[in-house]
Design a binder for these strands. Structure first.
Lengths: 221, 221
DNA sequence: TCACTAACGTACTGGTTCGTACATTAGTCA
DNA sequence: TGACTAATGTACGAACCAGTACGTTAGTGA
């Protein structure tokens, strides 16, 4: 049930529902990320698969549902990474920095995911709204942030009274923008935000920004 | 040469190249922002105009060039707003906050612009790269940031040694994300980042974040 | 081993959509 | 005022593309 089992094939053409579906999802992810929802071609996806267009409709129903399935899997990947994060042993400052870096790294390593989310926003998030899987789960990152924030605020280390969702937005915005807008930013300002040589530079900048915000001395509010 | 001059029309149908072009651009902006580049329909744009599809090709050449023209005008609007900004009389902290708020407000008030930029990034910024107008101008905001940053760093008020482009990226990321990703964010985290009731909340958060970053006490670097 | 079904392939269609060939009219300048 | 051109309208075509009707084969359980 894990992936393909090429060995079992008699002459090369085996029937394997799970593998076929996974292959379609892989190719569809690239195609949707490449060209957007309307720019993506079902025929193109089929052509890059070892199967045919008929199978896409057989397994997923249509282009819309295929895109929804692609989104569900992409969100699943980052949630899994967030779940694996362990910051219990760190102090609040180090823990927040660690979480921010996880988001930073994941976004950088998964530009297709960023593109899919951008595309989904162009379409008003209608696909994830219709998805049952993505509807009411809530991100694991949010739970982590909540715990760190509570510890940091209680100890007096964190002076800002943000809530977890807003802090998540702050971290995500920096990480997301850097990848999603790198093309226009490069053309307009002649700077590559995803230049590997600047990786550490921006990673540090993000952490500094978040920590500075959380620990700043506030004037009387 | 400013806009239309309805008065001159004898019975309602006048020939006015400037007005026709402006009207096409207005409608095209909405249509591209609504549906993305590939989702936008040239026929739909023509239908919502007082002219015909023929005119779109007559004046702009094609769908691609029309989209480029739409982008050029949209960028022109924000650059004009940045040019009008006057922060010379403010101290560096207030000046940076003021500039951040300008970006914040502009992005909030021009969601179509945000969508167009998102769409352009999906397409690798190929249209603005091909544009002569947008190629080598550089944003007025950048000049403003450079001056403020120099003053703030000289006076010792700003401890961070960022450059103007990176600071611009930081400010833009927060403002852009809030608008561009509001749909997925609302569905996934049940929070409307563009809720009018939270306008001041996020505006303050942005300013606090940037100022905290710029003025934070750094450990020895 | 045979029947049954899940998995798969081929060929096609109906609607859509960008773009254009061709025809026409309003303004303007000599 | 008449000729010339910029501006505009109509009708159509060719390609493209999501989706499907119909037919076939591999595995599997009785």
């Amino acid at each position: 049930m894990t992936r393909a089992d090429e060995a079992a094939a008699p002459n090369g053409r085996t029937r394997d529902a799970a593998r076929t579906q996974a292959e379609i999802l892989d190719v569809a992810t690239r195609e949707f990320a490449r060209a957007g929802y309307d720019g993506a071609r079902v025929d193109e996806i089929a052509a890059r698969t070892r199967t045919t267009k008929r199978m896409i409709y057989y397994y997923f129903g249509g282009k819309e549902q295929l895109f929804t399935a692609v989104l569900e899997r992409a969100y699943g990947v980052i949630r899994e990474a967030e779940r694996r994060l362990d910051v219990e042993h760190l102090d609040p400052v180090a823990a927040i920095r660690r979480l921010a870096e996880l988001t930073f790294d994941h976004h950088e390593q998964h530009p297709d995911f960023i593109r899919l989310v951008s595309i989904e926003n162009i379409h008003g998030a209608e696909h994830i709204a219709a998805s049952e899987k993505l509807g009411r789960i809530g991100s694991p990152a949010l739970d982590v942030i909540r715990r760190i924030l509570a510890a940091g605020q209680e100890s007096g280390l964190f002076t800002a009274d943000v809530d977890a969702v807003d802090l998540h937005a702050m971290i995500s915005s920096f990480c997301f923008f850097r990848v999603s807008n790198r093309h226009t930013f490069r053309v307009l300002f002649d700077r590559d935000l995803v230049d590997p040589a600047q990786h550490e530079h921006y990673r540090t900048m993000l952490g500094d920004m978040v920590i500075a915000y959380l620990t700043a001395e506030r004037a009387a509010e």
